[in-house]
Design a protein around this nucleic acid. Structure first.
Lengths: 254, 254
DNA sequence: TCGTCCTACTTGTTATAACGTGTTGAGTGC
DNA sequence: GCACTCAACACGTTATAACAAGTAGGACGA
């Protein structure tokens, strides 16, 4: 391995392979040369080729599978969670189901719901006191049988307790907007705070993605005027999802 | 090192340190025990402790500095890039400057602009042909002197060529919406496609973040009715930024 | 006093070696 | 023809060893 500028060998090898991926010499799903091959090709030890491939893995360009090899990862996410249109054009029962159907997939989900009390974080987001009763619902969404999205939502029981829509699922109406409408609360807007971070072990396991891959974490809160009526933590694999926000720009009035 | 269920030692050590970080035993900015200390503490070889710390690094919980040590990373992003309000309430010159001022920071930016031709990707996003001339502008935004956001924008020269707003910066008007207004093109909406991925080497270097930390990549396109008039690739560190989208939910009409 | 140098300590890089675990396909026996 | 076995091969884990390179603080000389 020629040593340019003292740059470590494993970075040079990573550069080399990366450029082959980016210029198309190595295509999506192609198998990289095995570690033994790379050792021979570049004349380095196994630890160097492992470091090189690890760099590409942490960049999300490559996935490794024990026993099979390392593969160029399909680059672009296949699914889109469209947000703007969902809310503004037809508030359907479930944003997830709507976006899944829009891309021709079969949506499924499972959920667990229970009464609990609000943590400080959740209380702050809902504008209530820590310890106030809330309805907590954990969802796990599947698209075409594959786990796709996790969501945990919280509603103040002060709003829904004793109404027909106390249960988020299984009642006569589903979906936050229609359910709240049914009890005379009209949702005016929704705020989504989006961050990116690495998948935590529980999330990686539940979403069936490799540990450490970047995920998108969304804090979504529905408001009726200035009053929060539901908040949720949503996690999607950024491998598989693009969040697409469509925002209106009103005409200027000057 | 007790060996539970055959789970690899480095994962157990990572679990151990992770729980110390999450429960506050190790606080933000605290130095982890050195590799030599961890080797002695757990009775394992250096490669094991390095693997363990690498796991935490890839999860974004720890940063390493050669010669100094490994440190618990400050967790929560401090800055918010507010999106919905910017477009819907007052289309200001620069979304970046507006959001920076909103959080009490001093916005600065540098840019390079030049004529070029559209790649296939950009052409698709702008609804033009690959090879058509475009104006390309690369921005690097700073907040309080620290690099905060990268952006590369493309405008079809078919729209702006020969007009006073051909140059995105330095002309009589700045900002996409006002500039397009000035030549009679009224932007109706903007689409932001958000993905998360690991920082690429160039981005890590330019944003001064450790390699491999998750970043948010935004493809933003401005539309005048159905016609795209500008598109940009925006990269922000998810360490430092939350994207906050505020979306209206119209009243039901059924 | 101040700057330089040196040393101790830290993580970074690389080599060699061995064994574990998961995958795959060829070969074998029924 | 089919199922099972097994060997070859892939990556996963761990040990030992050595030197490189960056940092910080103390010793030392001007």
């Amino acid at each position: 391995m020629a040593d340019f500028r003292g740059r470590p060998a494993y970075l040079q090898i990573a550069d080399d392979i990366r450029s082959q991926i980016l210029d198309g010499t190595l295509q999506a799903e192609d198998r990289l040369p095995s570690e033994a091959d790379l050792m021979a090709d570049y004349g380095v030890s196994r630890i160097v080729v492992r470091n090189a491939v690890e760099v590409l893995r942490s960049e999300g360009l490559v996935v490794k599978q024990q026993g099979r090899g390392s593969f160029v990862r399909a680059q672009r996410p296949q699914r889109t969670r469209v947000v703007g249109d969902l809310y503004s054009e037809r508030p359907e029962a479930s944003p997830f189901a709507a976006s899944a159907r829009a891309s021709g997939q079969v949506p499924e989900w499972e959920y667990q719901t229970r009464r609990t009390t609000a943590s400080k974080t959740i209380a702050d987001r809902l504008g209530i006191q820590a310890g106030d009763p809330v309805m907590r619902t954990s969802y796990r969404f599947f698209a075409d049988g594959e786990p796709a999205m996790l969501s945990t939502s919280f509603e103040p029981l002060a709003i829904t307790e004793g109404t027909p829509v106390e249960q988020p699922e299984g009642g006569p109406v589903t979906g936050v907007v229609p359910r709240m409408d049914a009890i005379g609360i009209h949702i005016t807007h929704v705020v989504e705070d989006v961050t990116g971070r690495s998948a935590r072990p529980y999330e990686a396991e539940t979403l069936k993605v490799p540990v450490g891959v970047p995920i998108l974490a969304i804090e979504r809160t529905y408001f009726a005027k200035s009053r929060p009526v539901e908040t949720a933590d949503i996690v999607v694999s950024s491998d598989r999802y693009v969040l697409s926000y469509r925002l209106p720009v009103p005409p200027r009035n000057d």
